[in-house]
Lab assay of single mutants.
Amino acid sequence: MKATFQVPSITCNHCVDKIEKFVGEIEGVSFIDVSVEKKSVVVEFDAPATQDLIKEALLDAGQEVV
């Protein structure tokens, strides 16, 4: 499964690193693409990962998800 999250609070590479760390810890996540320019995060994943778990990880990383 693939999901795109709009994350307007992404401003720098530190944000990218933190997002990759938090989302990458979720079992089932196979790909993460964070774009500072587009302020988006694209995640490819399989169970047990879910969109809700990914959104929670983004929030835990200090990001706003819309």
Rank of each mutant, 00 (worst) to 15 (best):
1 M>V: 07
2 K>Q: 07
2 K>L: 08
3 A>R: 05
3 A>S: 08
3 A>N: 05
4 T>M: 09
5 F>A: 00
5 F>E: 01
5 F>L: 01
5 F>N: 00
7 V>A: 02
7 V>G: 02
7 V>T: 05
7 V>N: 03
8 P>M: 10
9 S>Q: 06
9 S>D: 06
9 S>A: 06
9 S>L: 07
10 I>P: 00
10 I>K: 00
11 T>R: 13
11 T>M: 15
12 C>W: 10
12 C>T: 11
12 C>F: 10
13 N>H: 14
14 H>Q: 15
14 H>E: 15
14 H>Y: 12
14 H>L: 15
14 H>A: 15
14 H>V: 15
15 C>H: 11
15 C>G: 08
15 C>Y: 08
15 C>F: 08
16 V>R: 10
16 V>S: 05
16 V>C: 07
17 D>N: 10
17 D>W: 14
17 D>V: 15
18 K>T: 09
18 K>A: 09
19 I>K: 00
19 I>T: 01
19 I>N: 00
20 E>T: 14
20 E>C: 10
20 E>A: 11
20 E>Y: 15
21 K>R: 11
21 K>E: 06
21 K>M: 08
21 K>H: 08
21 K>G: 05
22 F>Q: 06
22 F>K: 08
22 F>H: 10
23 V>F: 02
24 G>Y: 13
24 G>S: 11
24 G>V: 05
24 G>R: 12
25 E>M: 14
25 E>I: 11
25 E>Y: 08
25 E>P: 05
25 E>T: 09
26 I>C: 03
26 I>E: 00
27 E>F: 09
27 E>V: 11
28 G>H: 01
29 V>S: 00
29 V>T: 02
30 S>C: 08
30 S>A: 10
31 F>I: 07
31 F>M: 08
31 F>T: 08
32 I>Y: 02
32 I>D: 02
33 D>H: 14
33 D>M: 13
34 V>I: 09
35 S>T: 04
35 S>F: 06
36 V>C: 15
36 V>F: 08
36 V>A: 05
36 V>L: 11
37 E>Q: 10
37 E>G: 06
37 E>H: 09
38 K>V: 05
38 K>G: 09
38 K>N: 13
39 K>H: 08
39 K>M: 09
39 K>A: 06
40 S>Y: 14
40 S>Q: 14
40 S>M: 14
41 V>H: 01
41 V>N: 00
41 V>Q: 01
42 V>H: 10
43 V>Q: 02
44 E>C: 15
44 E>V: 14
44 E>F: 15
44 E>L: 15
45 F>S: 01
45 F>I: 01
45 F>C: 02
46 D>I: 13
46 D>F: 14
46 D>M: 13
47 A>G: 05
48 P>L: 00
48 P>K: 01
48 P>N: 01
49 A>C: 05
50 T>I: 02
50 T>A: 02
50 T>L: 03
50 T>F: 03
50 T>Y: 04
51 Q>D: 07
51 Q>L: 15
51 Q>W: 15
51 Q>F: 15
52 D>R: 12
52 D>N: 09
53 L>F: 05
53 L>Y: 05
53 L>M: 11
54 I>F: 03
54 I>Y: 03
55 K>D: 01
55 K>T: 07
55 K>P: 02
56 E>H: 14
57 A>L: 04
58 L>T: 03
58 L>I: 13
58 L>Q: 01
58 L>F: 04
59 L>V: 09
59 L>K: 10
59 L>H: 08
59 L>F: 09
60 D>N: 14
60 D>F: 13
61 A>C: 14
61 A>Q: 03
62 G>Y: 11
62 G>V: 12
62 G>E: 06
63 Q>V: 13
63 Q>N: 05
63 Q>H: 15
64 E>Y: 12
64 E>A: 08
64 E>D: 10
64 E>I: 15
64 E>L: 13
64 E>P: 06
64 E>V: 15
64 E>H: 10
65 V>E: 05
65 V>Y: 07
65 V>D: 05
66 V>A: 10
66 V>S: 09
66 V>P: 06
